[in-house]
């Protein structure tokens, strides 16, 4: 601002200085504040609820034997403007009352594979090993493989797909 040394008593210098300091601040805060408030709502992540659909795994007639059986299930994933389908590998354990294990390693989320020669699950990423019932044998994972909710409907084994927090000792469903 142009300095005006001739300021009279009607316009005290301190008020003027306060105006010069705070008014620009206020305006900038107002403009940025309103847009950033909108921005916060705009960018806030949209959390889709985990689907409660029961998904067919395999007919019961195919479930026999001692070793885990690999199956693939498809889930729908709504994200923004799109729906994508995802394939997930699961293992059915005919020996353990047809329990279904998610193939997702509880360490960092790679998919474990069943190695029938050594009779254990192994994770390709960081060498966690799990026994045929899913319990942890060795490696960086902090818990065994995660079982999924199952039921039998019309002679078919069905699951609800879930994902779980990585690296926790307890099993926590991700939301």
């Amino acid at each position: 601002m142009r300095s005006r040394p001739t300021n009279g008593p009607t316009q005290p210098n301190s008020t003027r200085r306060a105006l010069i300091t705070y008014l620009p601040l206020g305006v900038v805060a107002g403009i940025f504040g309103s847009i950033l408030t909108g921005a916060f709502r705009f960018l806030r992540p949209v959390v889709a609820a985990e689907s409660d659909n029961w998904i067919d795994v395999l007919p019961l007639t195919e479930l026999s034997g001692a070793s885990p059986i690999t199956a693939s299930i498809t889930t729908e994933n709504t994200a923004g403007w799109s729906v994508t389908t995802e394939q997930h590998r699961v293992y059915v354990l005919p020996g353990t009352n047809n329990q279904v294990l998610s193939a997702v390693c509880p360490h960092e989320g790679c998919e474990v594979s069943w190695e029938s020669q050594v009779n254990k699950f192994s994770c390709p990423c960081h060498e966690s090993f799990f026994a045929a019932d899913g319990s942890k044998i060795s490696g960086p994972a902090r818990r065994g493989l995660d079982p999924l909710p199952t039921r039998v409907q019309d002679g078919k084994l069905q699951v609800q797909y879930r994902s779980f927090e990585n690296n926790s000792r307890e099993r926590i469903t991700r939301t």
């Binding site: 601002m1 105006l19 008014l23 620009p24 206020g26 305006v27 900038v28 107002g30 403009i31 309103s34």
Partner: peptide, 19 residues
């Protein structure tokens, strides 16, 4: 760059109108 309140008053008012 100098801060001139007049500039901010006008900018603030126009933004308000636009918003």
């Amino acid at each position: 760059i100098r801060l001139i309140p007049r500039q901010f008053i006008v900018a603030g008012l126009v933004f308000l109108a636009l918003a």
